[in-house]
């Protein structure tokens, strides 16, 4: 289980004339992710949801202050050194980045990315890696031969699926997905969400989905968190939240959602 307890994150930046700029992005957030369940963290952009996600594998920018605790099966990730974190990253918790992100090294083939991870974390030689890459790609719904392509030679949807294949490489317990469906067309979006859902149901992964798309988040997650201005303003099963939102911000969001449903 990943437990985030009272997490507060403050970004710091030095200006050239020596002043320090501070921005508190996350304020006292607590949430947890269990294996075999689908979680969604929704909120508008700038609400701090990506900061929460990046804090889990310790990927906040250097010099950022993070208080509170992030426990992975009881071990505090926030206090870990880089070398210890490197043993957890990808093997225990892997990241599925936003498809529009420049997430693959442009001069390496997609397959090479998977191969590297397999060799670093599992010590798999190149020969064995090839077979595994093929099965990973088919798990993510991609043809195996796409592994020989360079990132720029893939379409947005293919890149997103390749990112999922890469995330699954070391059999992680948790998947952290940062807006995996943004900038994709609706059909591709649905396909990717279905793939993720299948992974949770069949492989028992714990999945945290970050999205600004509340209807999408509410439709797939078994537990929904909503953030606003760095604070967690709502949490619970999506059905309950939609039925009786507590926070005025959520009310407005849900209201818009209901209007949409009535229209259709």
């Amino acid at each position: 289980m990943i437990e985030i307890k009272n997490l507060s994150v403050t970004y710091r930046r030095m200006t050239s004339d020596g002043r320090e700029l501070r921005a508190e992005a996350v304020k006292n957030v607590s949430l947890s992710v269990e294996k075999g369940r689908f979680y969604a963290l929704a909120g508008e952009s700038g609400s701090g949801k990506t900061t929460v996600l990046m804090a889990i594998p310790g990927l906040l920018p250097r010099g950022t202050e993070a208080e509170g605790r992030i426990l992975l099966e009881g071990a505090d990730l926030l206090s870990m050194k880089e070398e210890e974190l490197n043993k957890i990253r990808w093997r225990r918790a892997a990241l599925v980045p936003q498809g529009a992100m420049n997430s693959f090294t442009p001069v390496l083939t997609v397959g090479r990315h998977v191969e590297e991870v397999l060799s670093v974390h599992l010590g798999l030689p190149k020969k064995e890696a090839e077979g595994r890459i093929a099965s990973l790609f088919s798990m993510a719904g991609l043809e195996g031969e796409l592994a020989r392509r360079y990132p720029h030679e893939l379409s947005g949807g293919q890149k997103q699926r390749a990112a999922i294949a890469l995330a699954l490489a070391c059999d992680p317990d948790y998947l952290l997905c940062d807006e995996p469906t943004t900038a994709l067309d609706v059909i591709t979006q649905q396909g990717i969400i279905n793939t993720l859902k299948k992974l949770v149901d069949e492989k028992g992964l714990g999945l945290l989905l970050i999205s600004h798309d509340l209807p999408l988040a509410a439709s797939v997650a078994s537990r929904l968190y909503i953030m606003k201005d760095g604070r967690l303003v709502e949490e619970g099963p999506p059905r309950e939240i939609v039925a009786s939102p507590q926070n005025p911000h959520t009310k407005a969001l849900v209201g818009a959602l209901l209007d949409l449903e009535e229209d259709s």
């Binding site: 990927l59 990808w90 892997a94 990241l95 980045p97 992100m101 090294t105 670093v120």
Partner: peptide, 24 residues
């Protein structure tokens, strides 16, 4: 982004610097 993601994959510093950043 791809360097941040290489870090997220738990790659050793040498791989990130030479294999990804310098290679690019």
């Amino acid at each position: 982004d791809f360097i941040l993601l290489a870090r997220a994959r738990g790659l050793p510093q040498r791989n990130i610097v030479m294999g990804h950043a310098f290679r690019t």
